[in-house]
Design a binder for these strands. Structure first.
Lengths: 340, 340
DNA sequence: CTGAAAGCGCTTACAG
DNA sequence: CTGAAAGCGCTTACAG
């Protein structure tokens, strides 16, 4: 393969001059620069990534640590991944995608072998084991998901507290006084899925403040169980006029459940979901929903990570960036049916 | 960071001896080996990936090239990716995941900079532009998807011809004489989605041989359009008793459509789909279906790629590995309703 | 069985 | 404005 020595020879300059001409790190006469560039174009030179990494201690690679659970329905996972890889490329980085079950070990391996300049962690849990490994690593990291302790790292997530409040407030404004909240399954909570209880607790608190009765449930993460669950919850609360969903599978199953129960949206039942816009479009879910914005979160995490790698970001300050929830109106919200 | 010189010093040997002790590439006395291993453990030594790549011309990284289209419903894409990354790790490789819109340029970039030892291409089309770049690259490649010309590469795919035949044969065996085949949208075909016409043509040929009337359609790739499409196709062929689906969105929309039409499966209508098992489970799709096996295909592609990298695979022979279709029976197939 | 040295392909102080 | 040389951290012929 053609190396920088070949380029230098073709351009009639030294290797260091060729290198500087390409990096622009010192002033080079226009004539020399032109000759070097011509040589590069003619020979088809591309720097060897390993050699460059060895010389500079920079790889231009970020490592993306997924975290997948067998029993988890994570329809937006690919959207997070694409947000990260696309934005990384725009910023000049490639992405090493790591799906090892043992994320901590993988992080140490990548870190110790200097394969990446930084880490993006997906699906971060309340007490995420990977954080200890990340804090011990010399490379910076950015999280998608908010752990209990985000000290020393940058974290990006939807503001689930605000989301819970917003859902309840919107229902209250419309006149609803009794609503059901369907969360992810309990095993997601036990595993440290903090977004579940953040949203649920905030919704419950706000409901109490506003005088709204809120019934909290965990639902299964797949069909047909979630359909049965939804029916059971609605059976238990025939007076409920609003449904809040923090569970993608429930959203996907709901049209069928409501049809079976002969309930029209929003005339008989108002619905607010929380899921990604892509998910909504894929299944044409007709519910107003708070966009969980996986693409945006992935992009933000990468942007901030790169500013840390560059040293642009303030080393003493870490950010917790919670994006404000916005309800995409798809027409599933209205005043409750009048009781006669 | 601790390097092999530190290890050598701690063990009281030369750097080359330390290196050989770790690689096992020449015989080392038990005593020395033990001292080296102790030093490695004590110091926490991990080889620098860039330096090793520079010295060996091996990165232990494979590059995975996704190919995403805005208007494509690709629910199994993540399964392919995880099949690749998981199997790669088992074989000692990390995975660089590339989602660049311009796959050819990305492939050249990765290849020229020697960032990976080989390539896995996903979602390969009939005349995939990336193939020219792959053939020009010194690294080997494995395809998931079968292009028109697979010369010089290894290709892995579901046998869509056999799948088309199998669908028709099963319907015929059960006594069906008029069936509807719903394929992916025409734009998938125009883009080179060869699996669409391979399955459809094979099904049509086999239907003609067996005296089965087969009505071919393209359907939209998302709701609500695909629901309308399905209704229109069924309206057009009231005598059809079987439905063949080579379109995931159609499968997801079908339960609702059939319910609306008051058609019971399999009493009124027999159904065979073609989608991944994960997809079926996620939406609890109650249709017998040919598993498109994304995980398996990803794993096979990596296995073969690694054997090429190792030089284990026969350099003169390339494989086209089409996995035989198998119908997972979920009870959606029966004899057609008797006409009275 | 082990060591000294060259070399992989870059970048970047050091010198002019 | 440019060049010769050192060094990044490995591996592996070459020599003993």
């Amino acid at each position: 393969m053609v190396n920088i020595g070949d380029v230098a020879r073709a351009a009639g300059v030294s290797r260091s001059t060729a290198s500087y001409a390409l990096s622009g790190k010192r002033t080079i006469s226009a004539a020399v620069r032109a000759r070097v560039e011509a040589a590069v174009a003619e020979l088809g030179y591309t720097p060897n990534a390993g050699a460059r990494a060895l010389a500079t201690s920079r790889t231009s690679v970020i490592a993306l640590l997924g975290q997948f659970y067998e029993d988890e329905f994570a329809p937006a996972m690919l959207q997070y991944i694409l947000g990260v890889t696309d934005r990384a490329r725009e910023l000049g980085y490639d992405t090493l995608f790591v799906s090892d079950a043992d994320g901590s070990a993988a992080l140490r391996r990548i870190s110790d072998s200097r394969m990446a300049d930084g880490f993006v962690l997906l699906n971060v849990a309340e007490n995420d084991e990977r954080l200890a490994a990340l804090r011990a690593a010399p490379q910076p990291g950015a999280l998608v998901g908010l752990p209990g302790d985000a000290a020393g790292v940058d974290a990006f997530d939807l503001d689930f507290v605000a989301a819970g409040r917003l859902m309840v407030e919107r229902m209250h404004e419309l006149g609803h006084r009794e609503v059901v909240l369907v969360s992810q399954p309990e095993h997601v909570v036990e595993r440290g899925g903090a977004y579940v209880w953040r949203l649920a607790n905030a919704a419950a608190d706000r409901a109490e403040e506003l005088g709204v009765r809120l019934h909290r449930y965990y639902g299964a993460s797949s069909q047909p169980a979630i359909g049965r669950d939804l029916n059971a919850f609605l059976d238990a609360h025939p007076a409920a006029t609003g449904l809040l969903l923090n569970n993608e599978a429930a959203a996907a199953a709901l049209p069928h459940v409501l049809q079976t129960r002969s309930l029209a949206v929003p005339d008989d039942m108002s619905v607010i979901g929380r899921y990604s816009d892509t998910f909504a479009r894929t299944f044409s879910l007709p519910y107003s929903a708070i966009d969980s914005a996986p693409d945006l979160l992935g992009r933000r995490a990468v942007e901030h990570l790169v500013s840390r790698i560059d040293g642009t970001a303030d080393a003493d300050t870490h950010v917790v960036d919670l994006i404000a929830p916005v309800i995409d109106d798809r027409g599933s919200l209205a005043a409750p049916p009048s009781r006669h």
